[in-house]
Write a protein that binds this DNA or RNA. Sequence first.
DNA 1: CTGTTAGCGCTTTCAC
DNA 2: GTGAAAGCGCTAACAG
Lengths: 350, 350
Amino acid sequence: MSINSPHPTLSQVARKAGVGTTTVSRVINGGDRVSPKTLAHVRRVIETLGYIPNPAARSLKGHRTKTIGLVVPSITDPFFASCAEAAQAVARANDSLLIVTVTANEPCNELEILNVLIRHRVDGLLIVPADSNSHALLDLLQRAAMPVVAIDRPIGNPSIASVVADNLLGAMTATQHLIGHGCKRIVALTGEETLYTIQERMNGYLKAIKAAHLTPIFDTSVKDYACAERAIKNLLDGPHPPDAIFALKNSTTIFAFEALQKLGVAVPQSIALLGFDDFDLASTVRPSISVIQQPVEEIGRRAAEILFEQLSGGSSASSPASAKQPQQIKMTTCLIQRSSCGCTPANESK
Amino acid sequence: MSINSPHPTLSQVARKAGVGTTTVSRVINGGDRVSPKTLAHVRRVIETLGYIPNPAARSLKGHRTKTIGLVVPSITDPFFASCAEAAQAVARANDSLLIVTVTANEPCNELEILNVLIRHRVDGLLIVPADSNSHALLDLLQRAAMPVVAIDRPIGNPSIASVVADNLLGAMTATQHLIGHGCKRIVALTGEETLYTIQERMNGYLKAIKAAHLTPIFDTSVKDYACAERAIKNLLDGPHPPDAIFALKNSTTIFAFEALQKLGVAVPQSIALLGFDDFDLASTVRPSISVIQQPVEEIGRRAAEILFEQLSGGSSASSPASAKQPQQIKMTTCLIQRSSCGCTPANESK
DNA sequence: CTGTTAGCGCTTTCAC
DNA sequence: GTGAAAGCGCTAACAG
């Protein structure tokens, strides 16, 4: 109805209600220290006018913008999508909005986006850093002086909180499981070696292999399906063909599976397969694929929760146990035994 | 270094540079009407101080907030994740940020979230409406008086632009393809019948079935894997077992596939399978699954582009062909022939 | 309990 | 070219 102004203002409400602006302000902020009568009256006027407080004016007064930024490599990756969904839920529970941005794992994109986010005065940041050890990143974050929580990969500075999966232990467990199946020549198909997660998994694999006095075999060449097929073919035709494949990331697992299938190799009879990171159809394909599963949603949720704790707390003593040192949380992973590693799961159809 | 203020202000810059605030304002807004000399000088001071304009103050002056809201049922659904990723790219290209929210397809969540977004004064909205015909939704949107573009499902009012897949034509094509394979008893496994997309697909199926003088068979019971197994078992054991299944949505396709596999039914020999909406491993499972593919990313991208056109244009004549009527775009789908429908694709491994 | 009064950081006439 | 000054809508002292 109000043709003139798209949005009525607080003072308009005040005038129409015949009260001061302070009173209206108090009403929209919980209504404390206002007589029940005026409160009801002002509320009615607000309703009538369709008044909506302007958040810009509010945050201008030094308050929060009620937005947090999420910086991930990609949203189409199920892992990050789950994190994002969990984070948005937590944000909403804290009366905040989630701004989602993607970096494609490019440090320069990351820096640029972070700048935009900081300029936008988000209250805090959730980041999956493209490069865990980037000096520029750390600098920027330090200067921004706002709460930050790293997800999936720590940021090379203990002053920044992080929530990651226990990649090392997960990879050790996986490797040991394969060894338990009697595998002697286990090849690790890596993925981007520059990534913290991959490095940790490589270390875990290495640790288990060495403990069992076996020979570590790495193949870092698998970037796409073609690579996978070539790599596996070479391995199989070589003098000492492997008896197991440990794929260090999702897409690698799938490429390997496809290649094995194409080459007509019996899994797990001729060669066992175990992947790091679960995926939707891992239980549906035949043979079903055993994997190390990460508590994806929980990683996103915890990270967001920690961020909001930092936002509200901010001060010193709160939880008795935790010191001031920002938390570095490692979530435990879980081995899902399906068929591809040589196990025989009870209910094959789930 | 500035211990006192977390963020230097424009007037601090002005003072330090020995100029007026107006000049600084001009500099940060493109630097027009400022002498090259002062421009350079002010820029240097800005750099030194690490000055960042406060967007809250800016939008308070009636400007845009440079944020748009995306409202989807879920981000973990690959379809919406792709839309989101495309939309965020377009937003960034337009110097804006994307706020992502999820509704779980619940109209009440939707309304609530929309209110938060509107209150936040986002510049525009991208919505996958939980209910295409919700009066409350329409009302709210009308009142918000901001650019809105519907994605995947139109909002029951031609005054709101939308970008959706041509579900009807896609389903017709699918059904006709199955008929072309000689199938006579094609059962449609639906999904949520209240959804616009499902309804359209049902109509497309119906149209093709009728044109071929066949009998339509619907099964609306498939909500999860157990339902699927039961439904398919019943169908197969019935007096007139179907010779093809047309699954109207992704998860249904997967459930059906799993059930068929579990029941030991030969696909496509005993029964053909065709799904609506492509998914990652559709080409990897055996048999590979034929599907109707939607131009997902493009749907998200176009929708965002249209939103920004509305935001910038706003006025009347721009493109010669398009009238003032908001655009209702239907993207064409594509039949991906793989094995499950009876086709024999050339390259089975991709 | 309630109103008056300064600003928050920025843009924008309107003079110079 | 440049600056002074008046707000944008709201909150927060500080009086009553």
